[in-house]
Amino acid sequence: MTYKLILNGKTLKGETTTEAVDAATAEKIFKQYANDNGVDGEWTYDDATKTFTVTE
């Protein structure tokens, strides 16, 4: 399945997608991606749209 991440960081904003077997796997990938890019904030997930959002 395709999952989407919306980044609302102070210095980085944008979107990315990943292919993952489930939401938990996608979350791990996205949290590593956000960490690698210096984004740390409040996480939400919308199962209907398979979208994670992180807001600093």
Rank of each mutant, 00 (worst) to 15 (best):
T55W: 11
D36Q: 10
L12T: 09
T16L: 15
G9M: 12
D47P: 15
T16G: 05
N37Y: 13
T25F: 05
Y3L: 01
L7D: 01
A48E: 14
D40Y: 13
E19L: 13
K13S: 08
T18E: 05
V39R: 02
Y33K: 03
D22K: 04
W43T: 01
M1D: 13
V54Q: 01
K13I: 11
T11E: 15
V54M: 06
A20R: 03
K28A: 10
D46G: 02
T44S: 08
L5P: 01
G38T: 04
V21A: 13
M1E: 09
K50M: 10
T11G: 11
E15R: 05
T17F: 14
T53D: 03
A24T: 13
T44M: 07
W43G: 00
L7S: 04
T53A: 08
K4N: 10
T18G: 04
A20K: 02
A34Q: 02
T44I: 08
E56A: 05
T53K: 07
I29E: 10
A24W: 06
Y3D: 00
K31P: 00
A24Q: 10
M1G: 09
A24N: 15
G9R: 04
D46P: 00
K31Y: 08
E19P: 06
G9T: 15
G38K: 10
F52S: 00
K28T: 14
E19R: 06
A48K: 15
Y45L: 02
L5D: 01
Y45Q: 01
W43N: 00
A24R: 11
V39K: 02
T49D: 05
T16W: 14
A34Y: 03
T25I: 07
K28V: 14
A48M: 15
F30P: 00
T44Q: 10
G38H: 13
G14A: 15
N35S: 11
L7P: 01
A34K: 01
T25A: 13
T51I: 09
V39T: 04
Y3P: 00
E15V: 06
G9N: 04
K50L: 07
W43P: 01
T11R: 05
F30T: 00
E42T: 10
V39M: 10
T44L: 09
N35A: 13
D40W: 06
F52D: 00
K13P: 05
N35K: 15
A48N: 11
G14S: 12
Y33D: 02
T49I: 09
Q32V: 10
A26F: 01
D46R: 03
N37H: 09
A48V: 09
E56I: 05
E15Y: 09
L7A: 04
A26E: 00
F30M: 03
T44A: 11
D47M: 15
I6G: 02
V21G: 12
K13F: 07
A23G: 05
D47Y: 08
T55F: 15
D40N: 11
T51F: 03
E19K: 12
E27Q: 13
D40R: 15
T18H: 09
K10E: 11
E56V: 06
I6K: 06
G38W: 06
E15D: 08
F30S: 00
A26R: 00
G41N: 02
T44E: 12
K13Q: 12
G41V: 02
